[in-house]
């Protein structure tokens, strides 16, 4: 090393001091690749707002959509409907999945099941939520099975391995109605005081009018000087005593109907919607 090493070190030192004193005179960056990087970034573009105030002053207001039944239904993730192969938000569809049969007497290992509260795990398929259409097209039921398991290496099965109950859809309807009735009758006074005891925009009025044709309608009403839109569900399926019971436990009434709050009774409202669409 010796002399040569010292010479190199000296040379480097002088370069560093020279660079310190005279910075490189680089031309300003003009390449659009750098100054307009947003054009090449290939990321999803969005409008940027600094804070809530600037957003509001630009006419972007909070619409409170989480309390709107229809906005919630329409914003659910899309799933392919098995009869038509059309994609639809899954909250508007009926979920089918396979469950293992417990009893040893059963010849098959698996049973097709229609779930009311959609399961998140496991494989499932989706069909239109209409009793009439499903019954008419029943002979196609084999093609409605959740497909992935049939080609999965984890659990191999043939279509004859699956038991398809004859009362699959009628049982779904009965169960749905029972759950709905329970959830309407369970709404005790403690629950009612939790939510505001007053009718607000987007609340649901449930009626039991056997004369009326439409089961879903909107009502414009003036409450405390403000224009409110209420959703009217008319469900004539309740028996006289059931309806009386529902009216008794729900102390918030509007004319002949029971009021369900848009924030607080979301699950009951969704069940109602499901049952109405199922029965059309």
């Amino acid at each position: 090393m010796g002399h040569a090493g010292n010479a190199i070190k000296k040379l480097l030192d002088t370069r560093v001091t020279a660079l310190k004193h005279a910075p490189l005179d680089l031309p300003p960056i003009t390449s659009p690749l750098l100054i307009s990087f947003e054009r090449w970034s290939d990321k999803r573009k969005k409008l940027f707002f600094d804070d809530e105030e600037t957003m509001k002053s630009s006419n972007v207001h909070n619409l409170n959509l989480k309390d709107n039944l229809f906005a919630n239904l329409l914003s659910a993730p899309m799933r392919s409907e098995k009869l038509t192969r059309v994609k639809l938000p899954k909250d508007m569809l009926m979920q089918l999945n396979l469950e293992t049969t417990e009893s040893s007497s059963s010849k098959t290992r698996l049973r097709l099941n229609a779930t009311i509260n959609h399961k998140r795990r496991g494989r499932s398929s989706y069909v239109i939520n209409s009793c009439r259409i499903l019954d008419q097209n029943r002979k196609m039921v084999n093609s409605w099975l959740p497909m992935p398991p049939s080609i999965s290496s984890v659990q191999y099965f043939e279509i004859p391995d699956v038991e398809i109950p004859t009362d699959l859809f009628s049982k779904y309807g009965d169960d749905l109605f029972a759950i709905l009735l329970k959830s309407l009758e369970k709404r005790d006074s403690a629950h009612s005081t939790k939510t505001t005891n007053q009718i607000n925009d987007w609340d649901v009025i449930l009626t039991n009018d056997k004369e009326r044709n439409s089961m879903v309608a909107l009502m414009k009403v003036l409450i405390n000087g403000a224009d409110n839109t209420l959703i009217n569900f008319n469900l004539p399926s309740f028996a006289e005593n059931e309806w009386e019971e529902i009216r008794k436990v729900n102390n918030l009434l509007y004319e002949d109907g029971v009021v369900l709050k848009s924030n607080g009774d979301e699950n009951t409202i969704k069940l109602l919607y499901k049952y109405i669409m199922y029965s059309i």
């Binding site: 307009s36 990087f37 970034s41 990321k43 573009k45 409008l47």
Partner: peptide, 26 residues
């Protein structure tokens, strides 16, 4: 990455100058 007109994050390109996209005077 911040440029004159946008902020680029790992998932989005956020356009800062949003005047031409909004309709303020109604």
């Amino acid at each position: 990455i911040v440029t004159k007109n946008a902020i680029i994050t790992s998932t989005n390109t956020l356009i800062k100058n949003n005047v031409k996209y909004l309709l303020i005077d109604r």
